[in-house]
Write a protein that binds this DNA or RNA. Structure first.
Lengths: 153, 153
DNA sequence: GCAACCAAGTTGAAAATTCAACTATTCCTG
DNA sequence: CAGGAATAGTTGAATTTTCAACTTGGTTGC
């Protein structure tokens, strides 16, 4: 049995600052989006990814991957978005198992409005609060983390 | 109506890297803790905060604050931890409305074991993956963000 | 000392998420 | 090309989280 390598004081401080800050930021952005547009961040993310995809549609599995969600969760969430008329499901001709999720015109218009407020909040509580060099450090760091996590799967 | 100030390409890249990386990291740490010890990060956080408090106990409201959780959520979660015997509730003499959540002996022992694995995972997927200077930048940045969010309330 | 207000905490229902099957289809391998 | 393994996606139940009351007790102004 190996001795656990604890974090040193500075590492612990930084890690904890991150946990607290990220939870509070996510909470605030979620509430903001929900109160103004009735969307959660996860739903917003789905709409964004669809809006950027060719023909504004993606296979469910691919959408789950880029939106960092489980397939089950995506399935439920897309059903909700479908009820609101923001997304539509279509069968995929090539693979009969496959399903495309497609952003509707309404969905695109809705997203365009929500994005304005969301980006403003991201600025106000993230981008504009952080030193530009630190922002780059965050980009680097979380790219490396995402890679590391992906490698573990 | 003002023109929305969109993020520039680099800001957008960094923001998105952060969103993706943080979601995936949280997901992994949650699964790790859950599979090895049956705890979520939120529950773990509660136990940690209690373990560090004088007499290993805190008033519910204070615990909610330091653990970045709503009072309602905390109330439910503490009930679950109470069922597992890790936490106990005691009335507060001074304020009859008040309730202390207190870490039990079992809770402390349990946390001691869980912490070893959790810290190892935090190292493996966060601390050791990030350049030390970038880690400091993250600490700075999320401290500022937490302050900014707190100021908005 | 009482009326109005505020703070602490809980509760139960509604909404969201996870988990473990399950169906249907495609891929692979002998 | 048959049969098993793997992939896509959904479903429903269990768990967790959110939301809006609600109860109880403390505080303040008069």
């Amino acid at each position: 049995m190996t001795e656990p390598r604890w974090l040193d004081a500075a590492q612990q401080r930084d890690w904890r600052a991150y946990v607290e800050g990220s939870v509070r930021l996510a909470d605030l952005l979620d509430r903001d989006l929900k109160s103004k547009h009735g969307l959660t961040m996860a739903e917003y993310e789905i709409l964004v990814r669809l809006s950027e995809a060719p023909e504004r549609r993606l296979r469910m599995a691919e959408l789950a991957e880029v939106a960092s969600q489980s397939r089950s969760r995506l399935s439920h969430t897309v059903s909700r978005l479908e009820c609101k008329g923001l997304v539509a499901r279509n069968n995929c001709g090539a693979d009969k198992r496959g399903v495309f999720a497609e952003l509707t015109e309404d969905g695109f218009a809705f997203l365009s409005k929500a994005a304005v407020d969301h980006v403003a909040a991201v600025r106000e509580f993230f981008v504009d609060v952080v030193d530009p060099a630190d922002l780059q450090a965050i980009g680097r760091a979380f790219t490396a983390i995402a890679d590391r996590v992906a490698k573990a799967r």
